[in-house]
Simulated assay, not measured.
Amino acid sequence: MNIKKINLTNFKAYQSQTFELSKLSVFCGSNSVGKSTAIQALCIFFQSKFNDSDTLKINGDLVTIGEISDVHNHSNRNDDQLIIGIDFNQISLQWGYTTPKQRDEASLNELRLINTRSPSITNFLLNNNFKIQYLSADRFGPKDNFPLSQHAFHSNWLGTKGEFTIEVLQRLIEVKTERFNDVNDQRKHPAARSIDKFVSIEAWMQEIAPGYTITPQTIGKANVAFNTITPPNGMQTRSINVGYGYSYTLSVVTALILASAGDIVIIESPEAHLHPRGQSYLGRLILLTALANVQVIIETHSDHVLNGIRLATRLSDNHTDDLAKVFFVKNENSQTNVDILPIGAKGDLPSWPAGFFDQQALDIRSIISGVSIS
């Protein structure tokens, strides 16, 4: 059950924009241009749950944005339309307002359903067809311990900050029920000794920090989870002694490996605190996750992540031209516009717009010429 489209009218940066999503959708662009806006629209949908009403809640467990006046496009504030639309394979849903009367009656922080579909259908979509993981850019770094989860979207829920990752990993070791069922699933790391997903999580983490292993543990009576890490010298140490990149990335790798076919994984800034090689390998795992029939949506500033995705595409025998695309978000003439760049079967892109991951080339030219080129 894939998300096919996100339709936004006067929602935050966008006056009118449709995103036709692929199995892998990559949002990139400069700061504060609206890269995360489509992701926020999805998070609003998922956090609303629809247990007691058909309304979208713009503040909840995943994102907190404010009031309706904060999300209505400021440049088009006099327009009496605000719409968040989400299309699945067999259903299209819209929330917001389309008339002055509906706008006057709108709640401060909720959006009403404005088409005729029953909210029970929405509830069915959420509860019976897929699981989500959403990791925000504001994730937890290394800490001595984390509280155990008290409520979760599902049993493998990692938390928006990755705060429940250690708890989930400890359960994977203890129960050993999470395994790769498809022999063609390329997320199983070549160095993994078994089909247990935990083993591949650890193997992919070794692409980022070679030789390091993890020992996740929980103490139920104390309501805590904690992780010790063993570096190549064999001496166990606390997470806080290993560095930010390892902890920031552990939840990302776990989310990508644990997802099953039909699930949705949304990750903001997966590259945070990672060196270039780690970012590249993370990009490869992202593409392999999409090949495993998981819908992956990421927001990134990293050309290394993008090139890792492109490289995995080039090396794959199963890639199709519609598997992955890049949404390059930019601000032009005080409006947010989007260039759509499908990633070809050979990792190629149809064009390279100005401002699209071109800073390294500009800097090299400046170094060679001795003249600043911007």
Rank of each mutant, 00 (worst) to 15 (best):
His304Trp: 03
Asp317Thr: 12
Val296Phe: 02
Ser302Cys: 12
Gln295Asn: 12
Leu315Trp: 11
Leu306Lys: 04
Gln279Ile: 05
His275Phe: 15
Ile309Gly: 02
Ile266Ala: 05
Ala324Asn: 03
Leu285Cys: 03
Gly278Trp: 13
Leu291Asn: 04
Asp321Pro: 13
Ala324Lys: 06
Leu285Tyr: 00
Asn318Lys: 11
Leu315Glu: 13
Thr300Glu: 10
Ser280Glu: 03
Tyr281Trp: 07
Ala292Ser: 15
Val326Asp: 01
Glu268Lys: 04
Thr313Asp: 01
Leu274Tyr: 09
Ala272Gln: 11
Gln295Phe: 06
Asp321Ala: 15
Val294Asp: 00
His301Thr: 13
Leu291Arg: 12
Glu299Lys: 07
Glu271His: 14
Arg277Ser: 06
Ile298Thr: 02
Leu288Phe: 07
Ala272Val: 15
Asp317Gln: 11
Arg310Thr: 10
Ile309Trp: 12
Lys325Glu: 09
Gly278Glu: 05
Ile297Lys: 02
Arg310Phe: 13
Gly283Phe: 00
Ala324Glu: 04
Thr313Tyr: 00
Ser316Trp: 04
Ala292Met: 06
Ala312Asn: 00
Asn318Cys: 10
Glu271Val: 11
Asp317Val: 09
Val305Gln: 03
Gly308Tyr: 00
Leu274Ser: 06
Leu282Arg: 00
Ala324Phe: 07
Asn293Glu: 15
Pro276Thr: 06
Glu268Ile: 00
Ser269Val: 14
Ser269Gln: 15
Leu287Tyr: 10
Arg277Tyr: 15
Ile286Ser: 00
